[in-house]
Each structure stands twice: as structure tokens, then as C-alpha cells.
């Protein structure tokens, strides 16, 4: 569906028998790549093959399951970023909402004794409200979401910090730990529940984006907000929803992350900002052409996880990882996300 404007076959027919300009092989490859993330799949296969060949333990059940869990957590944390990037923004409050989810679930189910279900409900409402407020402010006052989500992130994490006095004492409910234990199984399937949750979320996102009015309106808002307004799409509602979903998804990821880590702390969410952005972009998101899908982000999350595993196994430090992925993002953006020329706007 999200094909490129380059394929102008019908226009050519319209121009009364004119010949299509010849495409070079390179152009055809670029075109194909934009429609389908071929390169990403090749990179993933190559990385997996390299790992298998160079490391004995790479494909053992424990390491495969661990990689799947890490990819699931990253993929879920990058869900909100995918939508934020799609509408042409960015969400830097994701770490704060991960902390919100993980702190609240440990604090109010533990020391405060609130039942788990109610606790989750409270978290969803809080996160949805704060995230939605970000989207509303950014749209209403046309302030870049970078600034708004930065402020909202500080506000949320600041309140948590003040409330817990920087001392989070509770531990994750055992139920959450079970979701992310490498050797847990799901309904008899030999994969941890978090992986199944991730896949289910992936399917839901695909349906929402492609087969609902909201999804269509979301792409319309992303590609041409002015035309969307004139086509009676409530673009502000779309923005509010996008940032609310982002916050809720991040908070829910926070539940899983704290289950995985055992205890919460104020910096639990920090790595997911950079990694989530990397997953979205490495997956090949191209906001200007509307080629942003959650399944691309899922692919990006898997690539990120496998490459990180290889780098760590190869003795590279966290610093090296950051440099590598920073450069990788720059390369990926060069292929997808470039902006229109000034001369096309004269």
C-alpha cells in the first residue's frame, strides 16, 4: 500500500504513449528497498549466521530465548516511538513512562497493597492522560513534540522521584517476573510469554494501522496535516491518541522491564530512548512517504538485539555500541528519510 511516488506507470499511460524514463538497476533496487526492507532482512540473516559460525553458544536455547526477550522488550518500548515518528514528531518521554510503569507497579502493589489489576488500570489511566496531554499541547500550540515530551518526561519522572524520595523499595510482582523468564513457556509453547505478547501486539498494530478508520486517518495526518484537516480528519485527536498510546505502551513495557530486572529504579527506562529510536530507524521508517509500520520496527528491534549481542560477545563496550549504532542510524536515514529540496518549494 505504501508505495513510492516514483512508480509513475499510469501517468506515463496518461501522457499518450510516452516512454517511461529508463530506470537504472540501482534505482530499481532503491525503489524495491523502500517498499520492502530487503536489506534489513539480509543484515539480520547475516548477523545470525555470523553469530552461529563464530560462537558455540550463540544458538543454544538460553541465548536464543534471552535475545527474544530483549528484542520483545525493546520492540514494545519502540511502539510509541514508531507512531511519534510517523506523525513527524519524536517522543523523548518514553523512559519516564517506563519508569512510571515499573515504579508504580512495584510501589503500589508492594508497600501500598493495591491489587495488581487495579494497579495496572491506574497506570494506564495516568500514562494515557499525561501522554495525551503532551500530544494536545504539541498540536494546539504547534510546539515541537521534542520540547513538550521533554518537559512532560521531566515532570513525570520528577514526580515519581519526589514521591518515592529516590528510594524505590518494592519488588516486582512474581507474576510479571514469570512473563520474562527465559525458560518460561506459554500455553505449552517453548517461548517466554513476553514474546507471545509482543507478537500479538504486532498483529493488533498491523490491523489498527491498515484496517481501521483510525489507521487511515493516522497516515493521512502524518502525510499532509492540512489536507487531513480539510478532509475532516480530527488531526488534534490523532495527535492526542498517538502520544497517549505511546505513553501507555511505554508504561506497560515498564511492567515487563521491572519484571525482568526484579527491582525498579529511576534510570531503568533510559537505555530505551536511544535503542527504541534505533529500532524504528534501522527498521527503515520513512515518515515522508508514509512508509512507517510497526512490523518494520519489530524487525529493527531484532536487528538491534542481535547486533548488540554480537558486539558484546566480541568484547565491545557500551561506548562502542553507542558509536556503532549512532553511525548505523545515519546510514539508514540516508537511504530512507531525506527531506525535499528547497528548489522544489519555490
Amino acid at each position: 500500500m505504501m508505495t513510492q511516488p516514483d512508480s509513475q506507470s499510469t501517468a506515463a499511460r496518461d501522457m499518450e504513449g510516452q516512454q517511461l524514463p529508463q530506470r537504472t538497476l540501482w534505482q530499481s533496487v532503491v525503489l524495491l528497498q523502500r517498499q520492502f526492507p530487503l536489506l534489513q532482512i539480509l543484515v539480520l540473516i547475516a548477523a545470525l549466521a555470523y553469530g552461529t559460525l563464530t560462537m558455540d553458544s550463540f544458538l543454544n536455547p538460553f541465548s536464543v530465548r534471552t535475545m527474544l526477550i530483549l528484542a520483545s522488550l525493546l520492540g514494545l518500548a519502540a511502539l510509541g516511538q514508531t507512531l511519534a515518528i510517523l506523525v513527524g514528531g519524536i517522543d523523548v518521554s518514553i523512559p519516564a513512562f517506563i519508569v512510571l510503569g515499573s515504579t508504580l507497579i512495584t510501589q503500589i502493589t508492594g508497600p501500598e497493597g493495591v491489587p495488581l489489576g487495579l494497579a495496572i488500570l491506574v497506570i494506564i489511566v495516568l500514562a494515557g492522560f499525561c501522554g495525551g496531554l503532551s500530544g494536545w499541547i504539541a498540536h494546539k500550540y504547534s510546539i515541537h513534540p521534542l520540547i513538550v515530551t521533554l518537559a512532560m518526561g521531566s515532570l513525570v519522572s520528577g514526580v515519581l522521584l519526589g514521591w518515592t524520595n529516590a528510594n524505590i523499595t518494592g519488588v516486582a510482582p512474581p507474576f510479571l517476573g514469570a512473563l520474562t523468564r527465559p525458560f518460561a513457556s506459554t500455553f505449552g509453547l517453548p517461548v517466554p510469554p513476553v514474546v507471545i505478547i509482543w507478537l500479538a501486539v504486532g498483529v493488533i498494530m498491523a490491523v489498527v494501522l491498515k484496517r481501521t478508520v483510525f489507521g487511515r486517518q493516522l497516515y493521512a495526518t502524518a502525510l499532509n496535516p492540512r489536507a487531513a484537516d480539510l478532509a475532516l480528519v480530527r488531526t488534534r485527536f490523532i495527535w492526542v491518541t498517538v502520544f497517549a498510546i505511546s505513553a501507555i505502551a511505554s508504561a506497560m513495557t515498564g511492567l515487563l522491564v521491572v519484571g525482568f530486572a526484579g527491582t525498579a529504579n529511576a534510570t531503568l527506562g533510559d537505555p530505551y530512548l536511544f535503542q527504541g529510536l534505533a529500532a524504528v530507524i534501522l527498521g527503515g521508517a520513512a515518515p515522508l512517504t508514509g512508509a512507517v509500520d510497526y512490523w518494520r520496527t519489530m524487525l529493527g528491534a531484532m536487528i538491534f538485539t542481535v547486533l548488540s549481542t554480537l558486539l558484546v560477545a566480541g568484547g565491545f563496550t557500551e561506548a562502542d555500541k553507542q558509536i556503532t549504532f549512532g553511525l548505523l542510524i545515519l546510514v539508514a536515514v540516508g537511504v530512507y528519510g531525506r527531506e525535499p529540496r528547497v528548489k522544489d518549494r519555490v
Binding site: M1, M2, P5, V213, A220, L223, N224, A227, A291
Partner: peptide, 24 residues
């Protein structure tokens, strides 16, 4: 281009956007 169309979206999507409810 600036007020009506979503150039990368399909002909069908461009056509149906304000009346999508009918197809739901």
C-alpha cells in the same frame, strides 16, 4: 498537492478518506 492529496497514499485511500465510515 498541499490541501487535498496524500501523494504517497493510494488512489483508493485518497478517495475514501472522509467517507470511510461507510466501509466499516
Amino acid at each position: 498537492k498541499t490541501e487535498a492529496l496524500f501523494l504517497p497514499l493510494s488512489v483508493l485511500d485518497n478517495f475514501a478518506l472522509p467517507t470511510l465510515k461507510q466501509d466499516t
